[in-house]
Amino acid sequence: MEALDGNAIGGLLLEVFGTEMTTAVGTCIYCGDTGPLAELVVYRPGPGTVVRCRVCGNVVMVFVQVRGITCVDLRGLAALN
C-alpha cells in the first residue's frame, strides 16, 4: 500500500487532541528530526494507522480505533509542540 502523509490524519488528530495538529511540530525520538506532523509518513491499513518519521522511517505514532475508542501510542515522539 502506498504511503500518505500527515495531512490525511488531520481529522483523526483533531478527534484525539481536540485541536488542529497537522501544523504541530514533532521531534523524532530516534533521529531527532523535527517538523510539522503533516510531513510524516502515514499508512492506514483499516482500523489502524501507523505513522513513521520521514527521515529515519521509525514508527513515531500508532492509532487504533476499536468500538468507538481511539487508542493512541506516541512511542516515537520525543516532543510535540
Binding site: 481529522g11 483533531l14 481536540g18 475508542i69 481511539t70 487508542c71 501510542d73 512511542r75
Partner: peptide, 11 residues
C-alpha cells in the same frame, strides 16, 4: 502514552 483511550470530540 501507550493505550490511552480518548473520547471523541470532533463531531
Amino acid at each position: 502514552m501507550a493505550g490511552t483511550a480518548v473520547r471523541r470530540r470532533l463531531t
